[in-house]
Structure formats: structure tokens, C-alpha cells
């Protein structure tokens, strides 16, 4: 599919909008439909679209094996870290409104946003990893 100019141009124009929509879904997860999982899937789908159109090797240049493996664990680390910070401030695990961010409402919002970002990073990179491992050519 590398020599189809319409496909290449449309993909290049479309990918920033797909990623912007993915970030929007992650950010608005607490007030509307969507959330970390759905936004992460949309972010992963944008990279998968790039890899399908421009080739697997070109896609691996954008997200290397090392980077996707690191991002897999960084998301989990953010999730568990926010939970443990709540424990350090004297609350239960993931009890956001104990965080010292002014009002309890703001602290709760920020805590949920951090959790959504962590889930989004992990889901996006796991989707990318599964796709690359499935589509990889045998050497």
C-alpha cells in the first residue's frame, strides 16, 4: 500500500485529528461518555493506521519496541502511584479527595484525570504492541 498517493495523503492529514479526538475523550472521561480505555484505543488506532499505510518497519521507527514496552509499564506506574500517594496522605487507596489541592472537589477531579491518563497510556501502547507482534514478518 506504500505507493497509493491518495491513501498516504489522507492518512497524513487525518492522523492529527484522530489523536486530538483521542486526547479529548481521555480528558472528558469523568464528565461525559468515554474515558481512559476508549481514548487509549483511539490513540492506538491512529498509530496502527500509520503502520498499515506506511509499512510495519516505518511504524516501528515511530514507536520503537523499547518505547512501547516502557509505556506499557509507565501507565500502570501512574495508576498505582496516584493510589499510593493517596495512602501517603492518610486516605485509603485511590481516595482522591484527601489530596492537598485546595478543595476536595478539585482534588477528586485531578485524581480521576491522572488515573484516566495512566489507563490511556497503557491501553494505547498495549494495542500497538499486540498489533505489531501479530503483523510482524517471520525472519
Amino acid at each position: 500500500m506504500q505507493d497509493n498517493i491518495i491513501l498516504r495523503t489522507v492518512t497524513r492529514i487525518l492522523i492529527p485529528f484522530i489523536q486530538l479526538y483521542g486526547f479529548y475523550v481521555i480528558m472528558h472521561g469523568e464528565s461525559g461518555p468515554g474515558g481512559g480505555f476508549q481514548g487509549g484505543v483511539i490513540l492506538g488506532a491512529s498509530i496502527i493506521l500509520y503502520a498499515i499505510v506506511f509499512g510495519i518497519d516505518q511504524g516501528r521507527k515511530i514507536i520503537s519496541e523499547k518505547l512501547s514496552d516502557t509505556l506499557n509499564s509507565v501507565g500502570v506506574l501512574i495508576y498505582a502511584g496516584i493510589g499510593l500517594i493517596c495512602v501517603l496522605f492518610g486516605g485509603k487507596y485511590l481516595e482522591y479527595n484527601i489530596l492537598p489541592l485546595g478543595s476536595a472537589h478539585l482534588a477528586s477531579d485531578m485524581g480521576i484525570l491522572g488515573i484516566e491518563i495512566g489507563v490511556g497510556i497503557t491501553v494505547a501502547s498495549v494495542m500497538i504492541t499486540i498489533f505489531f507482534e501479530t503483523a510482524r514478518r517471520e525472519r
Partner: peptide
């Protein structure tokens, strides 16, 4: 159930198709 519909559209119609076709190519 908009949240479930969102998940179904992105995972069921998007990622699953790509993964099954990638498996089919082998």
C-alpha cells in the same frame, strides 16, 4: 448505554477487525 456503545464501536469495530485481518494474513 453510551459508554458501552463507545467501547463497542472503538474496540469491536476498530481494533478487533485490524487484529483479525493481521492474523488472517498469516
Amino acid at each position: 448505554a453510551v459508554d458501552v456503545a463507545f467501547t463497542e464501536a472503538s474496540v469491536g469495530a476498530g481494533i478487533t477487525t485490524v487484529l483479525v485481518i493481521a492474523a488472517l494474513s498469516r
